[in-house]
Simulated assay, not measured.
Amino acid sequence: MTQNTTGGTAAAPASTTTTTGRTARGDRITADVRGSGPGVVFVAGAGPFRAVDPITTRTAELLADAGTTTVVFDRLGRGDSPAPGRLDLDRELDAVAAAIDLAGGSAVLCGHSSGCAISLRAADQGLPVTGLVLWEAPLELGAEETRAWAAEIERRMDAGDLEGATEHFMKDMPPEWLAGAKASPDWPAIAASVVSQRADAQALTWATRALADGGLAGVPVPLLALTGTETFPGMPEAAARLAAAVPEGSAETLAGAEHSWDPEPMAARLARFVLA
């Protein structure tokens, strides 16, 4: 159940193996695995998967060339990781554990956006996580506000109102993002995929509460909170709070804009973190 693609020149990226893993609950995840060395697993936020995320793919290629094993996987209910039923946080954490297995049994987690909260919860729950690199964790809102936001998303999902759930998930994002999504011919598919974001909403509810009440003090691994040089209001402050909330935390700014990073400097910074 694997497919191998190997670059043809010395300057080409490390070879890529597209493979599958199984979670403890029997869900299947599909992942691209590259390189050899300490493991790094990329945990996407709301929406992205391998086929539509060239930035993460390029970062993983560069990082694999630096001497690591990188895993980019489709989260449950996305891309090539189909999963019916209720995709809650516990089920997603099982998928993260399966991705860590593909990385060699332990890994640094690189979370993006709400994937940061899932990564934090994975470390908190004792998964074999060796470090956390978190890009623009959206923890700027208060715990109660986040809880109410997440509860409304789940209410709309459970009522079958997937478009409404998507709109509510995106309500605090730049309005042009939602307008662009609704104007796209892919809008029905975008709305249908919101079922995979229940885990994001639940993880953000937990993370904002843990950030407020000191619950992150037990996170047992080094954490690097990153924000882009061009970012949204509140993100740098949230990164600083996050770094201060864990025993081994730091916060930095790195090249990036529109809630995303530049692959080359991100890969270089990840390599320093992982190989230190």
Rank of each mutant, 00 (worst) to 15 (best):
A11N: 12
T16D: 01
T23H: 04
D27E: 14
I29Y: 00
T30P: 01
A31M: 07
D32L: 13
G45Y: 15
I55R: 15
I55P: 02
A66K: 12
T70D: 12
T70M: 01
D74S: 11
G77K: 03
R78Q: 12
P84D: 14
L89A: 10
D94W: 06
A95R: 07
V96A: 08
L102W: 15
A103Q: 09
V108L: 13
S113E: 12
S114H: 10
C116H: 09
A117P: 03
R121E: 14
Q125D: 08
G126R: 04
G126S: 06
T130V: 08
L141Y: 09
E145S: 13
T146A: 05
T146H: 01
A150V: 08
A151D: 15
G160C: 01
G164P: 06
D172V: 13
M173F: 04
P174C: 07
P175G: 08
D186E: 11
V194C: 01
V195Y: 02
V195A: 05
W206M: 12
G215M: 09
A217F: 00
L224I: 13
L226Y: 01
T229Y: 00
E230R: 13
G234T: 03
A240D: 12
L242T: 09
A243M: 07
V246S: 07
E248T: 13
L254D: 05
S260R: 15
D262A: 13
L270V: 06
L275C: 08
